[in-house]
Amino acid sequence: MAVTIAKERWTSKVAEMVIGPNDLKLGGESTLSFLHFEGAMPNRPVTSLEVFDMEPEDWPDMLKEAYAGVMNDPVAWAKKVVEYGADAVTLRLMSAHPDWKNASADEVAKTAKAVADAINVPLIVLGCGVEEKDGEILPVVAEALAGKKVLIGCVTANNYKSITAACNGYGHNIIASSPLDINLCKQLNILINEMGLPLDRVGFDPSVAGLGYGIEYAYSIMERARVGALTGDKTLATPVVCFVGENTWKAKESIAPDVVEWGPLHDRAILWEVTTAITFANAGGTVFIMRHPESLKRFNAFIDEAYKSNAY
């Protein structure tokens, strides 16, 4: 008896977002990840490496070695990231953090502009993570980057208003962040959309956790969001942004050098980041923000294979 290939007939798709000077497209999937035989994945997942606007003292040696010589110069660091093969540069404005340098909005906006001007790939700009401070600095950063079509984040239910208004006015896209909660995520998307920013300019940050530290929660949320998107829930049909590097480079498996039973540090640290990224690629992630260039390279090799058509 002949085998019939079971193909799901999805009725809808993820919104397609356009970012950067090269109009890089992302999202737009009308199928589950890499199931090319029952739908389209029109755009390759987007990879990025992080650049800090000041030297991050708490980074492990493996990361510091990869960016030796450029960590005091965000522009040079950004160029290095492009050299390493990232699709986009992610600039984290850590100097604005009240516990770090408490830099002003104008200071960080100047850095963001300098970085954006120096690269010809899309820029993703992140605040320092303190909701109140990000609500102050990110609108100023958005203004300084007018017309560059950057992806700005992360906004929360507590600070989305000022940042959304600025992103809308200056032609940017936004990353909406919710604490591993699909209901809050959906609600935040709705609130942002109600301010007039179209849903194809919103990315969804589910606040992922890395391998071994709650990855399965993030995995199932992403999967649920994708199925929602494919079955017609437009408020969930936004591309998913995964902060992979941020969450794997704090795992003890990525930094403890002398645990004999875990094997050599270098291998496990890279694999911790790559495995986390691949897991989320399968769950429906779209933008992957990583930290180590070697992880990026290996993850890209995976995408190269998975992105090949398996249509029947």
Binding site: I182, N183, L184, K186, Q187, I190, R224, A225, G228, G232, D233, K234, T235, L236
Partner: peptide
Amino acid sequence: QTIYCDSYIKIFRQR
């Protein structure tokens, strides 16, 4: 059948 959010009543009408 639909993922919950606080505005679910409003969203239901916007499909």
